[in-house]
Amino acid sequence: MSKVLVVAEHDGSVLNPSVAKVVACAASIDSAEIEVVVLASNVGAIAQEAAQLEHVSRVLTIERPENDYAIAAVLAPQIVAMCSDYTHVFGPSSTYGKDVMPQVAALLGVNQVSDIMAVIDSHTFKRPVYAGSGLATVETPADSIVIGTVRIASYSSVAEGNSASIESVDVAVELPTHTRFIELKSGASDRPDLQTSAKVVAGGRALGSEDNFELIYKLADKLGAAVGASRAAVDAGYVPNEVQVGQTGKIIAPDLYIAIGISGAIQHLTGIKDAGTIVAINKDEEAPIFEVADIGLVADLFNAVPELTEALD
């Protein structure tokens, strides 16, 4: 039988929505027992949230001042010290999970399955390669622990309403001080979260300036949508890095994705291929984005977007 440990991503006070999706992935392993570990300086509220997730049988907490901020070299040895009873350790394929999970794998002497998008059986998984141009079915060795990151766009969150037990764990490992958190510069906004929003409006280089991106914000606000961007728009400095969608940005799966002035490079398309409906507005009728769009409009965005914003009520 499989026993899966899920490493809970959080920001110090709130559980990240990715955790409910990693649990969903773990729950797709036949008769898996699922436990969550929260490493924080103050685990209280985070552990409470994790305990509500369906399928979770127990939440373990490691409360130490060193866990105040997520530093891979600090977290990994603690996870390694408490994971010997598990057959699997999963984390999200977010920058948090990508940072720490390979360290866990290396300390355990195994390779990692990155970006799990489907579970075939307890040791066989599907994952994307070449920016999603191929899907590989991979098999991990039967006799060793499975360390994996979960492609969160491939899973729907498990329900809440559970009340799993919460237990604190002591791990006696010495932690390094060679890595120090200085600051987080975040463009935190009141808009919906890009990674979990049901609707996303994204702009590309054709917007031409930071000021013109206002057109995207207005449409997004009208729709209650999150804002995204292509790499080109981020590189040009129109928007901050955290809104980039694509192979090297965020992989998202909203119900509605509106791509405005985005040509649709393969690296961008890999970030949206699980979207429900893709709408493309682009002046260039040859733009590759139209090959994947469910609804396409060839138009000058500077006319079409204000008109669309106006027309929606």
């Binding site: 191929g134 899907l135 991979v138 098999e139 139209f290 469910d294």
Partner: peptide, 17 residues
Amino acid sequence: PAIKELTFEPPAERERG
């Protein structure tokens, strides 16, 4: 211990809308 790549398949194509 290596992770074995068993098979590869192309991704599901999105149909032109």
